[in-house]
Design a protein around this nucleic acid. Structure first.
Lengths: 247, 247
DNA sequence: CGTGTTATTGACCAACATCAAACTTAGTGG
DNA sequence: CCACTAAGTTTGATGTTGGTCAATAACACG
C-alpha cells in the first residue's frame, strides 16, 4: 500500500466513482484490498449456480455475463459486466448462488475474499453504501430488461441494449465516442434478449440498413445515436449514473 | 416501546424473520419504528416514478405492484408485494424512483421516515444486513421473471407465478394450504408476464381444464401442486427463504 | 488450406397479439 | 329485491411477430 495504486485496483476505484463520491482514505482502502488474480478463457464459468463462494469476483479485463440454464436446456442471460464490475457482490449476503457467472471472451479477474470486503464495509460505511447502490442499480437494469423482454419488440430490445452498453462503457471512461467492441455472438444476444439467433441476425441487418449502426466483426459503431436511442425507447435514468454521461 | 408490539410492527417483524434471524433487541427496535398509517384505494399510486421520497412504504394490508409505463403506453409490472414488504426500500440509496408503486386493491400501508430507518441500520448491523438481503432477493425475483418472460412459454410463466405467490404467502404464514386470493385481473397478470389479456385468459382455462387449479372470483386453489410446479418449471431456490417452506 | 465457429438466407410454422363482440359478475341506487 | 352499470372474463376470427429447421456463406485460426 505505497502511494501508488495498481491498475487492478484502479479499475475498481474508477467503477466505484461512477456510483459514489469517494474520499482519499476510502480510495486508499480500496487500493489495499487483497486480490488473487486469475486469467480465464472464453466460455469459462467464474462462479456456478449452487456454489457458495468465499470470494467475490472483480472483472479486470473481458466481458462476462450472468445467466441461468432453464429446465428445457434454454439459457437466459441476465446481465453483461464490464471491467470494474464485481459480478457476484450478492454472495456477500446470499451465500448460495442462484445463477452462474460466465466469461464470453478470455479475460482476467481478481478474487477478493469476503472477509476483506466485510472488513472494508465495516470500516467505511460510505463504501458499504456504494456497494448497496451498485446492487440496486443492478436490480434496476434487471427491471429494464424485464420491461424490454416483456413489452418491447425485438427491434427495440436490440437497440436498447446497444445504447445501454455504450452508455455504461462511456461512464467507465473505457470509450469516449460511439465506437466499441461488443464481444458477443448473435446467439448470446438472443439469450439475453429472449430472441432466437436467426431473428437477432435479421434485426441487426435492419438496424444497419436503416443507418443506425455499422459493424465489422465485433466492432460496433453507432452511426446515429439519437435515432438509435429513439428506436430503443432508451432513457438512461435507470442506470442512476452519478455524472451526466452525454449522448 | 412497551412490551407489546402493534400488529403493524408485527407484520414487518414477521417478514424480516423470513429472511434473517433476529435478536430480541432487534425486534424491539423494529417495533419502535415510527409509522404514519395510511389507507389507500384501488389503483392508487403509493410512490411514483420520478419521486424522491423521504419515507419508505411498508405494506400492511392489500396487494401492490411495482411497474413502469413504457414509451408506447404499455405497462410492465415488475413485482407483486404482500403485507410485510417494504416496496421502495431501494429509495434509501437511490434517491429518485425509476418506477412506480401501485395498489391493485384497497389496503393499508405505513410510511416510515428514511431517517428512522437509517438510524436503525446504523445501530443494528444485522438489520442492515437483512435489508440488504431483502433487496437481493428482490433482484433474484426479477431475474427469475426475466428468465420466464425471455425463455418460458405462456403456460410455464403463469404456472410459475402462481407457485411463486403461493410459496411467498406460505413463508409469511398468511396461508397454510394451497388456497389463497390472487386479487389481480387477467389484464394485470398479462402486464406482469408480458402477455395479452386474452392469452392469459386462455392459458388459465387450460390450467383449469388440466385440473391443476380451480378459481372462483379471485380465490384460487392449487389442486395439484406437484404438477403445477412441474408445469411452471418452478424451483423456489431463488426466493432464498430461510425456513423450509413446504412442498 | 482445412476446420470449426459464427453469420446469413429461405421456407415454413406456431405462439401469441389484436380486434370486436358477447357474456358474467359485482356493485349501486332506487 | 330488482334494474342498471361498469369492470372483468370469455369467445371467435384473423393477423403478425418471431421461432424452427436446414442449408450455405464468411470468417478466424492453427
Amino acid at each position: 500500500m505505497a502511494g501508488s495504486t495498481s491498475s487492478e485496483h484502479g479499475r475498481l476505484i474508477r467503477k466505484m466513482e461512477t456510483i459514489a463520491v469517494l474520499t482519499e482514505p476510502e480510495k486508499a482502502a480500496l487500493a489495499g484490498l487483497p486480490m488473487r488474480l486469475k486469467d480465464f478463457a472464453e466460455d469459462t464459468d467464474l462462479v456456478r449456480e449452487g456454489d457458495t463462494p468465499q470470494e467475490c469476483c472483480l472483472i479486470l479485463e473481458g466481458f462476462i455475463c450472468r445467466y441461468k440454464l432453464l429446465g428445457q436446456g434454454q439459457r437466459q442471460i441476465f446481465s453483461f459486466h464490464l471491467p470494474g464490475d464485481i459480478a457476484d457482490l450478492q454472495c456477500l449476503q446470499l451465500s448460495v448462488m442462484d445463477h452462474s457467472v460466465g466469461a464470453l471472451v478470455p479475460g482476467r479477474c481478481a478474487y477478493i475474499p469476503h472477509t476483506a470486503l466485510r472488513e472494508l464495509t465495516d470500516r467505511f460505511p460510505a463504501i458499504a453504501a456504494a456497494f448497496w447502490r451498485d446492487i440496486l442499480i443492478d436490480a434496476a437494469i434487471f427491471r429494464e430488461w424485464l420491461a424490454g423482454v416483456g413489452r418491447r419488440t425485438a427491434h427495440q430490445r436490440i437497440a436498447h441494449l446497444i445504447c445501454e452498453v455504450c452508455t455504461r462503457l462511456k461512464s467507465l471512461k473505457l470509450i469516449d465516442d460511439h465506437v466499441f467492441d461488443l464481444p458477443v455472438t448473435q446467439a448470446e444476444l438472443g439469450d439475453a434478449l429472449g430472441l432466437s439467433t436467426v431473428h437477432v441476425n435479421r434485426v441487426l441487418q435492419d438496424l444497419r440498413r436503416a443507418g443506425l449502426i455499422t459493424s465489422k466483426g465485433r466492432r460496433l459503431v453507432i452511426e446515429d445515436w439519437p435515432k438509435l436511442q429513439e428506436a430503443g425507447d432508451f432513457d438512461p435514468a435507470y442506470l442512476h449514473l452519478r455524472a451526466p454521461e452525454g449522448r
